[in-house]
Amino acid sequence: MKERGTPMARIRASKVLWFMGIILMILVVLVPIFIMFKYAISDRSSVVTGGMPIPLWPYHPTMEQFRGLMSMDAFVRSALTSMKVALLAVMISLVMGTPAAYALVRYRFPGIMVLATLLISVRLFPDIVSVVPIVEIFTKLGLVNTVWGVAMAHALLSTPYVIFIAMGVFETIPKDLDEQAQILGASRFYSFTRIILPVALPGLAAAAIYVFLLSWDEFIFAYFLLAFGGLSTLPVMLQKVLSWTPQHNLLAAISVLLSVPVVIFTFVVQRYMQTGAVAGAVK
């Protein structure tokens, strides 16, 4: 009984430390978002203070920047283009990457790791290195200045990652499921589409989010592929906007609008990301 106070106190102390650590980490994540949001709704006087400290909360919160951007034709058009490109890139890289990953996992053959490494080697170099050959090839194929062209370039960048993520997912799915389906009369394709893909969906959702983010933020390929046409994705358009150094509050508003689709897409896809997809399959 005598000793009981000491360990209890120690537990409480360690708990307090834990909570402080957690709060610190939350702050690290949230403070920049808060600052971005604060700037986005700041009026001019809260940004251009003439030497006074910038206030924690704007003097006159306003949606002016958002309204301005949304009424900007080029911004809205670029946003739509970006959205189309990103969704297409997700589609292309998943359609190409998942069967490849399945084959790499299920059909073991010599040199498999060499092949897998070759697949990802496109990302071993800075993007700028592959820009020139790709633009050249795409020019010949007439893919320059098209949504499909940019989407395919983004798919090219992300497919190796999709393959790697999907390989990890397929490896967790017991081979018994494929074999059981075969014994019940299913072809390889049938069991892939009806059994393996649905079970792999949560893991593939993560890959989809990754591709979406990559495409949404990608600049260099989009810039070179769209340089001489009317189309532009958001990053390409922003490059034009940023060249005249706009105010902090406008930049922040752009950032907020840029992150909204990503957040929405992630929320939608995350519903598929519950754990335990293979629960109950074996044992």
Partner: peptide
């Protein structure tokens, strides 16, 4: 065939 793991489609 019934597998040792049952291999039910989850």
């Amino acid at each position: 065939m019934v597998f040792q793991s049952y291999a039910l489609f989850p």
